[in-house]
């Protein structure tokens, strides 16, 4: 019997989803016969790890701390094996700017972009280059916080007048923002498990308002289709692209790569997530399920990869 610490909650804005992921993982671990220690991550994390001495930590934290390498670093120091990617891959994926530069340098498709921190605007007059950026990227353009895990803070600017308030919103979540060309098309997610791409999930908004983030990401207003209705060649193309991203960024065991498929059938990588959601309706469990891998088996395999 393995003693598994499930790390969840914490102070991230995605605390609620993380608690749900953690609860679901705990249920699976119990079913698999493991000894489960649930830890809502806080000031006592290191003390609890020392006291409980888990054999392995299952990371069910999303966003800040749990997905950006902070908790992974603590686990490295504490000598506790953990699920998912190691510190450096977490840091590369948690920062969309680093991710996008790595993709661009490697020749993988990612929408054209610029990134700034607040200082650039406050101290270096970056406001003066906004018109040039707007001209190069075109409208609508997407403004998003560099290191916010979920869709929080993502704004669409349809004209130059929308850009300042979109930037103010994005800077609410992050010290750094990405201004990105908008790709109009289909919203795809490819989950990777044990270095193999799972069936593609497509998020199909129910409402026609593609610019309203709430309608895209709110449960009940988006239908998830898995496997996505794509021809075999496109499926293989986005799967191999996602796997390429997973490898390029150095992810281990699992990840989820989000892409847009434009009207011409070209895929564009938006981001990679090292700790995908683990609720019943999350995309990785859905994709695994479509591949015949039930939730318990999914958890079992993620755990096995941690110990390897």
């Amino acid at each position: 019997m393995t003693r598994v610490a499930v790390l969840k909650g914490g102070r991230s804005l995605e605390r609620q989803v993380s608690l749900q992921s953690g609860d679901r993982v705990e249920e699976a671990l119990h079913a698999l016969g493991h000894d489960v220690i649930a830890i809502d991550v806080g000031h006592d994390l290191v003390a609890r790890l020392r006291a409980e001495k888990p054999h392995v930590a299952f990371i069910a934290l999303h966003g800040r701390d749990g997905e950006d390498g902070t908790v992974q670093e603590l686990l490295e120091i504490a000598g506790v094996p953990y699920t998912g990617s190691r510190v450096s891959a977490c840091m590369r994926c948690a920062d969309k700017v680093v991710t996008k530069h790595a993709l661009r340098d490697a020749g993988l498709p990612t929408p054209d972009f610029f990134a700034f921190n607040e200082t650039a605007f406050k101290e270096l007059g970056a406001t003066d280059v906004l018109p040039a950026i707007e001209e190069r990227l075109g409208f609508p353009l997407v403004v998003k916080p560099a290191d916010q895990g979920s869709a929080l803070g993502i704004k669409f600017a349809r004209s130059a007048a929308d850009v300042p308030s979109a930037l103010v919103a994005a800077f609410s979540y992050s010290q750094k923002v990405v201004v990105e060309r908008h790709v109009d098309g289909r919203d795809l997610a490819v989950s990777i498990l044990d270095d193999v791409a799972l069936p593609v999930v497509e998020a199909v908004p129910r409402d026609e308002d593609f610019y309203e983030y709430e309608s895209r990401y709110e449960i009940g207003r988006t239908d998830f289709v898995c496997p996505a209705d794509l021809d075999a060649a496109t499926t293989e193309r986005v799967q191999s692209l996602a796997l390429g991203v997973h490898e390029l960024l150095g992810c281990r065991s699992l990840s989820r790569v989000d892409l847009m498929l434009d009207g011409g059938g070209e895929p564009w990588v938006l981001e990679a997530n090292t700790v995908p959601g683990m609720t019943d309706t999350s995309l990785l469990p859905q994709a695994a399920d479509a591949a015949g891998i039930g939730f318990n088996e999914l958890v079992s395999r993620i755990l096995a990869a941690a110990a390897a």
Partner: peptide, 19 residues
């Protein structure tokens, strides 16, 4: 970059990875 020994199913989905 897809792993060659895990071919896609007819619908394009990855085959179940375990038997």
């Amino acid at each position: 970059m897809m792993n060659d020994d895990r071919p896609l199913g007819p619908g394009g989905e990855a085959r179940p990875m375990d038997r």
